[in-house]
Simulated assay, not measured.
Amino acid sequence: MPRRGNHEGSIRRRADGRWEGRVMLSGRRYSVYGRTAAEARRKLQELAQRYRLGELPALTPPRPLTLNEWAETWLRDCAGRLRPRTVLTYRQALSPLLSLLGRTRLDRLEPLRLSHAFTSLRGQVGSRTLEQGYTYLHACLEAARKLGLLPYNPLDRVPRPRHERGERAAWGVAEARRFAQACHADGSPIARLLLFCLATGCRLSEALGCRWDDLDTAAGTLRVARHVYWVGREWREGEVKTRAARRTVPLPQLARQALTTPAPSYPYVFWAGQPPTRKQLSYAMRRLCQAAQVPPIPPYALRSVHASLLTHAGLDVAATRAHLGHARATTTLEHYARALPGDRRAAALLDGLFRL
């Protein structure tokens, strides 16, 4: 049998049917995997080429990584590209999965083990969290595959958990009016903030980021350029996410009624010191819904109510998309512009078409 040359390594077939190639480089053993012997041999050759070019130490870990270690590396990389709140969402969604799989070596993650993890978490965490966890873990493992740390993405062989959106209580014009009246009667800063969101369709974070110098009272407009949001126990201010979100919003009379006299020492319109927390906003929303005798909805749903009112009034999708600051009209159609309960315009149109 001819003797193997330097950095050629050896190839063997594993019990799981995959082919493993092993090679010693600078006193360190490396392993690659393939579905066929030819694929494993090719990967060994690519590994040797990276070694000769001096790229191998940066691409291959000195020891097998656990999923916890790789996920932390991947999240740190995400922190350099994404907003802190987005990274926090990734971390929270991955947490249940990492509690079960975190100590597993990255190269020993198999579809069956991943499938068992998702099955065991079903019922313990919400279906939305489980769906998000699948999405973010798939991206995490895909990044490992692209760097050669995995031969393939094992989540490709695991069905995605399905999240069925529940039916949210729908508000019509009458419910929106009663809620606006309850906000007027309350008069607190949070009540004025929520009334402003209903009247303008602004995101809560955009309304919290609203400064007095963003308002043009003569023209009756608001320049949306920044948002204020919470990351854990810290609040932060930043520019809005997309170009479409940077917009000028006309202020109807209802929105102007939510404003007070500017306070020179407080640059923000709806808060001073620190913005209200999610807990404070949710508590105020429940209290105002009860006072208005309307079905309870979360604070962020006021934006959807606003969009539905615009649709009911006859505003076209393109104008609604620009008004809400969406980059794509599909977002407006799928998640915001819903028909109001009791809307009989479709029936009236059909009656006109089939009048005998």
Rank of each mutant, 00 (worst) to 15 (best):
G5C: 04
D16Y: 08
S26P: 00
S26F: 03
G27S: 10
R29F: 02
R35C: 11
E39T: 12
R42V: 14
L44V: 06
A48H: 09
R85Y: 04
T86D: 03
T89D: 13
A93F: 01
L100K: 02
R105I: 00
L109P: 06
A117W: 01
G126Q: 00
E131S: 02
A143S: 14
D156C: 03
P159A: 05
P161I: 02
P161W: 00
H163N: 00
E164S: 11
A174I: 14
A176I: 05
P189D: 02
R192L: 10
L198Q: 03
A199H: 01
G209Q: 06
C210M: 15
D216P: 10
A218I: 10
A219G: 12
L222T: 04
A225E: 13
R226D: 07
H227C: 15
V240S: 06
R247A: 05
L251D: 01
Q253V: 14
R256Q: 12
L259I: 09
L259D: 07
L259Q: 04
P264E: 14
P264W: 05
V269K: 08
P275E: 08
P276T: 10
A284D: 01
C289Y: 02
A292T: 04
A292W: 03
S304W: 05
H306D: 05
L310F: 10
L315N: 01
T330G: 07
A337H: 09
A339Q: 14
L340V: 12
L340Q: 06
P341E: 04
R345W: 09
R345G: 11
L353M: 13
